[in-house]
Each structure stands twice: as C-alpha cells, then as structure tokens.
Design a protein around this nucleic acid. Structure first.
Lengths: 203, 203
DNA sequence: TGACAATGTTACCGATCGGTACGTACGATT
DNA sequence: AATCGTACGTACCGATCGGTAACATTGTCA
C-alpha cells in the first residue's frame, strides 16, 4: 500500500518519519514480543500498553504477523550494533572483536529472566516457513554465519567454515541455555570454551 | 477369532490403566505439539485428529497445560532412551557413548523439517515459570547437565564441569541450528567440534 | 478561515480459544 | 429386571483471538 508522502520534510532527514502512535506500538511490541513471545501477546495488549487503540496499529502495520516481522527487523539492527561494537575497540583483531561480544553475551545470558535471541525464538514459535517473521530470522542467521566465516578467516583458522560452525553452535547454545538454566547455567563457560575452540582451530 | 470382544483386560496392572481414548489423545498430542508447537495447537485439533471428543480429553487430563506437561514427560523418557543407547555398545567408553549420541543427533538435526528439542522449545514458548510444562523441561535439563558432568569426569577431563558446559552449549546449539538452518547447517560440524573440545579438555 | 489528509476513538465482527453441563450406550452385578 | 459405574458424544459456555467499519479530532497548508 503506497502512501503519499514528501510534503513535510523540513526536519527529520528520514523521509518516512513514523507518527507517534506507530512508534509507541513498535516499541511496546518489541518489548512484549521479546519478553513473552509473539504468540503469547495479543494485539489488544500491545495497544493497551502502548496507550493507543487497534485501528492505529492496523493503519501502520498490515497485520500482527507483519508487526512481528518488523519487530524482528528492529531486533536485527540492534543485534548487529552490539555484535560489531567490538570492531571499534579492536579494529584489526578479529578474535578480540568476537570475544568482546561473547563476553557481553555470557553476562547477559546468565542474568535471571534472560530470554535468548528474539530471532531464534521466533523460528521456534513458527515452525512452518510461511510466516513473514520466520523469513527475517532465517535470513539473519545466514548473514551471521557468513560474518562468522569472515571472522574465522581473519583469525587464521585452518578451516574457517568449521570454526564458524562451532562458534555458531556455541552462540545458539548460549541463547537457549540462558533461558533453560538460571544464573549459573553453562553460558558462564562460553568465553573459556570459545577460546579453547579457537585455539584448537588455529592448530 | 472370537465373535465377541473379550471382557475386562486380565493383564495390565490395575492402578491406572489408560483407556483407549486417552492413549490416542496422548499420541496425537505428542506428534502435534512437537511438530507445530504447543501454543499453535488447540485442543479441538488434537481430539479431531485423534478421532475422539473434548470431554474425553478432559476426563484424562486436567487441562491443556497438563497434557502439555505429560507430553514432555513422555518426550523425556524417549530422550533418555536414545541418549543412553550408546552405553550398550560402548559400556566402558564414556567418550564413545557420548559421540554415538552426537552422531545420531547431527544426522537428525540436518534433516529438513527438524524441530529441535521438544523440551527446549517448550521453555521458549512459555517464558513465565508458572507453566507445568516448563518445570518438566527445566528439571530435565538439570539432569542432563549432571549426566554430562558424569561423562566428562569419566572421560578424564581436567575440569569436568567446564567440559560439560561446553558440550551442553553445543547440544543446545545443535537443537536450535537444526531448525534455523536447512540441511547444511552448522549441526553438520557437531561431531568434529565436539571432538576438538574434548581433546582440548583432556589437555 | 476553510479544506484536507493524517491520526485517534468507539464499537463491533466472525472465528476460535480452553473448558464444561448433560445425556447416552453398555457391560457387570444383584 | 433393576441398577450401577464407566466411557463416550452432543451441544454449548464465556472469553479472547485478529481485524474492521464508521466517526471524531487534529495539524498544516492555501
């Protein structure tokens, strides 16, 4: 549905500046979807908590499924920001960059109430591949895998694809384990284990 | 072949022998809950597919939540059967026993349509800790962790708890990755990576 | 000021959710 | 024959699901 626009562009460089209600819905949905799960949260609760009403939601988002997909797109943006944050501090050290993310993740994943990766969770909630949210998640994980291969190559791994696979298993395992076990779950050991694996991969 | 059906079952210990309808419900629920997720399946669909009616379900199970918990208890029994199957073939080799499970898992997790671990999925579906299904899952994961520590000790790991944590991360990562990636996901590398990790843990 | 489009609100839709009151078919006991 | 316990089905409940039609309000321009 293309909407007419470009009539009020003086401030806000982003041409499609979201109206207030849509943005509140977006933020509320993001928090509730992540914390409680997508299926567990009805649109009624979203709009109530956002202080708006349902038609406001459906004017900005075609359906709940699309809102969920949008939530995951936002989630992905936030993910990459955190993931690549280490590149600023360690510009030429792929290993240090990766471990910076791992250290932060290990801390988060051993906090009470940790809910894992929103993208992974969405795939668990929607097994059929027809759901728009699932596509966002699957494409993201492919990108993540490719990025890990890049980093593994930069680290000098003998078999970068193999190391990337191993790191990915540890990552996803941390997301799950963080939810399954309490504050003293196996995610505590993520950094040590990852270092062992990287050492072994370098020979 | 007798013309008339025989009378009350002489075998089957009296205590609480399940009637026919309850067992069909149980099996149907197990398949649907695992394949589609618990929240995605309504009781109506379960009883329809099982060829029974709702009151039959509620006579044997207090609620859908309880049926879900029962499904996970069955799932756990099946899990341990597979997990400990390697002990028959390799009675005195903890490493070989564990790797036998890992090899089978890696194969399953790289099949199209793989759905991961039913227990882990249930925790993702029910973040709040009040749900009976979640308790079953959490207790199971604790047992699994303890078992992995036992096996790590038997393998002669320098730090058995650390190795167990690493193996658990790989396991959970395989469950997730099997769903996230297709047939050529990182679960393909599970065996190699696990071997690297075990080697490193033995020093 | 007046016109217009964008946004917000009230009230409602059919479908489905988990769950249940109540009647019935049937074999065993007396 | 009368009765009882068991197992099952018919028909329905209120609540909630995702989604929408119709109307009121607002801000921004001419």
């Amino acid at each position: 549905m293309p909407t007419k626009r470009s009539q009020t562009p003086p401030i806000e460089p982003a041409s499609d500046a979201k109206p207030k209600a849509a943005e509140r819905i977006r933020r509320t949905a993001r928090e509730l979807f992540y914390r409680e799960g997508i299926r567990a949260i009805g649109v009624e609760e979203i709009v109530t908590r956002a202080g708006v009403t349902k038609p406001s939601l459906y004017r900005s988002y075609a359906s709940k499924d699309e809102l969920a997909a949008e939530y995951l797109r936002d989630y992905e943006v936030a993910f990459w920001k955190v993931f690549e944050a280490g590149a600023q501090i360690h510009p030429d050290d792929a290993r240090a960059q990766l471990m910076a993310y791992f250290e932060g993740l290990a801390q988060r994943a051993t906090q009470a109430g940790y809910r894992g990766c929103g993208l992974t969770n969405a795939v668990v909630e929607y097994p059929g591949d027809e759901h728009p949210a699932r596509k966002v998640a699957e494409e993201h994980k492919q990108k993540l895998r490719e990025r890990l291969i890049e980093l593994s190559t930069a680290m000098g791994a003998q078999d970068p694809a193999l190391l990337a696979n191993g790191l990915l298993l540890l990552l996803e395992g941390t997301y799950s384990s963080g939810q399954l076990f309490g504050p003293h779950g196996p995610a505590e050991s993520l950094v040590k284990v990852a270092n062992q694996l990287i050492d072994a991969s370098l020979r």
